[in-house]
C-alpha cells in the first residue's frame, strides 16, 4: 500500500514540476556540454565536426598553456583566499571595540564590494601605470625603484591579486564582524577570569567560535577566486606573455578567439570538476562529520 500522506500531500503539485524543470535543465545541459566536448566542434569549420572521443581531454593534459593556466588558477585562489581571510580577520579583531564613527567605517567598507569590477580594474590599472600611476609615485617618495606592475610577467599576477584583495577583503570583514557580534561574550570573560591573557582568549576561545563563519567565507572567496574573470580581463587580458592567464580566462580565449568550442567546453568541464573536488575536500576538512566543531 502506498503511504497515504505522501500521495495526498497537495503541495507536491507545486514542487514536483519545479524539480522536474530544474533536473531537465541542468542534466540536459550538462549532458549536451559533455557531448559537444567529445567532438571537435569549431566555428572555423562549421558543420564538419565529428566524434573524437576523449581527444580534447587528452589534449588538455598535453597542453602546456592549459597546465600553466591551471597552476596559476590554483596559486591565485590560494593566495587570494588566505590573504583576504587573514587580513579581514585581523581588521575585525582590531575594530572589535567601540569607537566614534564605527557605523561610518562599516559603511565605507561596503564601497569596494559595491563597485563594479570594471571600475575597480580600471582604477587599479591607473594606479599601477608605470609612468603616471600612484603606486610608483609612492615608491619614489620612499626611494624604491620603479616597478612595472602590469607589464612584468613576474609581477602582473600579484598586481591583479592586490586589486582582488582590495575589493574582497571588506566582504570578509563584514561577514566575520557579523559573526563576532552574534558570538556570546560571556565565554571570553570566563576565559579572562580563568587566567587567560588577551591573545589566549582570542586564540583558544574567540577564534574557535568564529571557525564556522571563517570557513564559510573562505569557501565563498575560494569559489569566486577560481572563477575570477573580470579583473583579469580589464587589467591584463591574461598578459603579459600569458603570465596572468587563468584557466577560466584560457577557456574564454579558446572559445571566443580561437572559436574552438569543443576544447573550450572540455576546459570548462575540467575546471568545474577540479573546483568541486577542491571545494569538497576543503569542506570536509573544515566541517568534519564527527560533530562539526
Amino acid at each position: 500500500m502506498r503511504p497515504v500522506a505522501a500521495a495526498s500531500d497537495p503541495t507536491r503539485h507545486f514542487f514536483q514540476p519545479i524539480i522536474v524543470c530544474l533536473t531537465v535543465a541542468s542534466v540536459a545541459l550538462t549532458l549536451f556540454v559533455i557531448w559537444i566536448s567529445l567532438h571537435d566542434l569549431s566555428l572555423m569549420r562549421a558543420g564538419r565536426e565529428k566524434f573524437v572521443g576523449l581527444d580534447n581531454y587528452i589534449r588538455f593534459l598535453g597542453d602546456p598553456r592549459a597546465m600553466a593556466a591551471l597552476w596559476r588558477t590554483v596559486l591565485f585562489t590560494v593566495l587570494a583566499t588566505v590573504i583576504e581571510i587573514a587580513l579581514g580577520l585581523a581588521v575585525v579583531l582590531f575594530l572589535d571595540r567601540d569607537f566614534a564613527m564605527k557605523r561610518l567605517v562599516r559603511t565605507l567598507l561596503l564601497v569596494p564590494i559595491i563597485m563594479t569590477p570594471v571600475v575597480v580594474g580600471l582604477t587599479w590599472r591607473f594606479l599601477f601605470d608605470p609612468a603616471t600611476g600612484m603606486a610608483n609615485y609612492l615608491l619614489s617618495l620612499v626611494g624604491i625603484a620603479q616597478v612595472d606592475w602590469l607589464g612584468s610577467p613576474r609581477i602582473a599576477l600579484f598586481s591583479v591579486l592586490v586589486a582582488d584583495i582590495w575589493q574582497w577583503t571588506p566582504f570578509v570583514i563584514l561577514l566575520v564582524m557579523a559573526a563576532l557580534e552574534s558570538a556570546p561574550t560571556d565565554p571570553l570573560n570566563a576565559a579572562r577570569v580563568d587566567g587567560a591573557r588577551e591573545w589566549q582568549v582570542t586564540w583558544y576561545v574567540l577564534l574557535p567560535m568564529l571557525r564556522r563563519a571563517l570557513a564559510i567565507v573562505a569557501l565563498i572567496r575560494a569559489i569566486d577566486s577560481i572563477k575570477a574573470f573580470d579583473l583579469f580581463y580589464i587589467m591584463t587580458r591574461g598578459g603579459p606573455a600569458l603570465s596572468t592567464e587563468t584557466l577560466n580566462y584560457y577557456g574564454y580565449i579558446v572559445a571566443f578567439t580561437n572559436f574552438d568550442i569543443s576544447y573550450a567546453l572540455a576546459i570548462a568541464i575540467i575546471l568545474t570538476v577540479f573546483t568541486n573536488v577542491a571545494l569538497l575536500t576543503m569542506y570536509s576538512v573544515l566541517f568534519p562529520k564527527t560533530g562539526d566543531r
Binding site: 556570546p184 570566563a190 577570569v193 576561545v205 567560535m209
Partner: peptide
C-alpha cells in the same frame, strides 16, 4: 581578571562551546 585568582560561574554558563 587573570591575576585576581578568583573563579566565576555565569548565568549563561559561559562554557567554551568548541
Amino acid at each position: 581578571a587573570r591575576e585576581r585568582d578568583v573563579a566565576m560561574v555565569f548565568q549563561s554558563y559561559a562554557l567554551y562551546p568548541t
